[in-house]
Write a protein that binds this DNA or RNA. Structure first.
Lengths: 226, 226
DNA sequence: TAAAAATTGCATAAATTTTATACTAATGTT
DNA sequence: AACATTAGTATAAAATTTATGCAATTTTTA
């Protein structure tokens, strides 16, 4: 009875989402070993004995990116016996929302961003995991302005609306969106405006570090040390 | 590296909730072995190699109860290194909503229902898991009438309101509740009334087997074979 | 058998939230 | 100076939610 469990392995996988070039993109790694050698996959790893699951997910994330300001939430645990072709691997999946301008990864042939609407063939059940993380992100967005985790630190309302439209997958009315956005708790109106654009300057906004109305969320806040 | 994972164990634990005697109650088992020998715990077990996680949770549930008509949803995976005193056990927790009148368990000194508002001292982090399942149930109830999984098959609107009030932890206005309840998709008005009560008879209602607006839900429907 | 107690069942007005809709303002470019 | 482009704004209608009071049916009991 006990031995039955000994052959299980458990991993964490992390769906890392950002908005780049007006697309929701996910960070993928190319597998260098079997199974699924050469296929793209979401980053993952084993859980160390001293780590809790959040720490393990955060470590996996930090192995691939150098970001401080992230939203990280446990997504779901996937454990179909056939999800791994030659072992029983249960994975506790997380998803992270990161800001493009906080990112410093160097795309290589083995690591890169992919549009979630145009994914390559993926290893394991990773496509399902990504789809599910998008669904969860939409659900979160209906409860709290979690999209600000995907925006630059200072942003215009138009940029915010674009992020919402990308995540929700539909276009929104500008006037109603702005009215609602301005009523959002934690939104700060700055006395700054966009400059370099060749159009009318837009006011910039920011979010204070608010307690989001999230259910399972963990926030790793940026250390403001400068 | 690989060996590091070999010492992890993974289990499923199931929070089984019902409404009995106008209280939300949870099914607990008394541990017969160390650790936490003699303490109450939620039912759990190892995952078999051939099972997916839902199947494992369902099996654990069926080992304790004989119910057909249940709501079962993955809750969260708990993996703090210290949650188990002398091993690294990660548990994928589920919660189930079952109908009191579908239940046939025989309470023994080792198995019994406990009011969630008056829990005994529990093993591991099981108190946290139960609290979290209550929170999730409240969240679900705001999205879909999942409470009908806790009601008898035929129920009065007053009974339905009582269930909502118990779960949400607040009293609701009768007139507004009835208006909203009557507008709920899937609610069927029966041509039957309560009898044995010593007051004015109340109309009975039922729910058709609807697709609930749930996110991670799995329904094990009753087999109507009679 | 009449009154009382308990619970069912219903309707409407007020407040709030959501939705729908069109024009003016500011800036750089030509 | 006219044009192109994006920023920015107000209001009415519709829908939803909340608040509130009273009549009807049945059993109990006086």
């Amino acid at each position: 009875m006990f031995n039955v469990t000994k052959t299980h392995e458990i991993t964490v996988d992390v769906v890392i989402l950002t908005i780049k070039n007006n697309n929701i993109q996910v960070l993928l790694v190319k597998r260098t070993t079997e199974p699924f050698k050469g296929r793209w996959a979401i980053p993952g790893g084993y859980i160390r004995l001293s780590e809790n699951l959040d720490d393990a997910a955060l470590r996996v994330l930090k192995e691939k990116t150098e970001v401080d300001n992230i939203y990280l939430e446990q997504l779901y645990t996937f454990g179909d016996p056939l999800r791994h072709p030659n072992a029983r691997v249960i994975t506790c999946a997380y998803f992270a929302l990161v800001r493009d301008d906080d990112l410093s990864i160097t795309s290589t042939p083995e690591l890169g961003w992919h549009k979630v609407n145009d994914l390559p063939s993926l290893a394991y059940d990773h496509k399902e995991i990504i789809q599910y993380s998008l669904k969860r992100t939409r659900e979160r967005l209906e409860l709290c302005p979690v999209a600000y985790q995907l925006l630059p630190e200072k942003f215009t309302l138009t940029e915010m609306q674009k992020a919402y439209e990308l995540i929700m997958g539909k276009s929104l009315d500008k006037r109603n969106f702005r009215k609602k956005a301005l009523a959002t708790e934690g939104l700060i109106e700055l006395e700054e405006y966009t400059k370099s654009s060749s159009k009318r300057p837009a006011r910039l906004y920011a979010f204070e570090n608010i307690e989001l109305n999230s259910k399972r969320a963990h926030f790793i806040k940026k250390e403001k040390n400068k």
